[in-house]
Design a protein around this nucleic acid. Structure first.
Lengths: 143, 143
DNA sequence: AGTATATACTTGTATTATACAAGTGAAGGT
DNA sequence: ACCTTCACTTGTATAATACAAGTATATACT
């Protein structure tokens, strides 16, 4: 029945969020916090992004992104250039040190996941990755 | 290759935690916060649990659980009885109102998930639920 | 039995990541 | 030219966690 699969997903999601928050916030994997990591990842992938465009994409409050961007800039991991066509906005870009620290963190995090899933079948890992992507997409589309 | 599935899971997990935090913390589904919900769930399922046993089970700090338990007790959702065999400890149990509010919240949350996944194949939902459970188990076992 | 150590819990304080509200200055429509 | 909307910043609040210190009970050792 649909009933039981929904119930299982709902409960496991509640458990998962707690574990992930605990793992990524209080017992860090690398030097970047969760928000900084995702932000760098996105800025690397999106050449001409702004505070607003990031907030829209991730459904975060613009003030939240503003602070995260300020923090990354202060650490020298991104640069901001005044937007030519709009004096209110900035164009964000990752810097050389930013790209390096992102890569280091990415590797540390991936190593963590690799350890966690070392006994899984590769087919399970693939299926899990795809389902997670699909779930994330559904979350973003819904709101 | 293992490489790409690990990378996909790692990235999607980072995205997921943000979305789940946002959904369950700032735009609530029901009257119980995330911690209270999981706690009630656990207390219902585990007859004779204590602050310590819960902290161990979830790998949380005992002070965190202590506050969450105090909050639930204050709202009348659980009761605590002095442990017969250990004067330092209490036995926790869910109350009638606690069971009710848990059920309401559970239904609201499940309805949210149902909406989110309404276009999925039932087989996908089942697979996802099972993989999530397996992942959560792996997280708990690792630490 | 008495004392020292370990344990269960509480309380104080800090941190992280978020939201909402208010403020500033630039853009754009009429 | 003025009013409104928009991009961004800053102030403040909140939730959920951790760590550290304190209290009272339990256990172990001599």
């Amino acid at each position: 029945m649909e009933q039981s699969s929904i119930a299982a997903i709902e409960l496991e999601m509640a458990l998962l969020v707690r574990q992930l928050v605990s793992m990524t916030t209080y017992k860090k994997n690398g030097s970047l916090d969760r928000a900084a990591y995702l932000l760098l990842h996105h800025i690397l992938a999106s050449p001409a992004c702004s505070v607003k465009s990031i907030a829209d994409e991730f459904h975060l409050d613009i003030s939240t992104v503003s602070r995260q961007v300020a923090s990354l800039e202060q650490r020298g991991y991104i640069s901001r250039m005044p937007d030519q066509s709009d004096g209110r906005s900035y164009t964000l870009a990752i810097t050389e040190p930013g790209a390096e620290v992102l890569k280091e963190n990415q590797e540390a995090r991936q190593e963590g996941v690799r350890q966690l899933l070392k006994d899984w079948e590769e087919a399970e890992r693939q299926a899990f990755g795809e389902l997670l992507r699909k779930f994330n997409t559904a979350c973003l589309e819904q709101s």
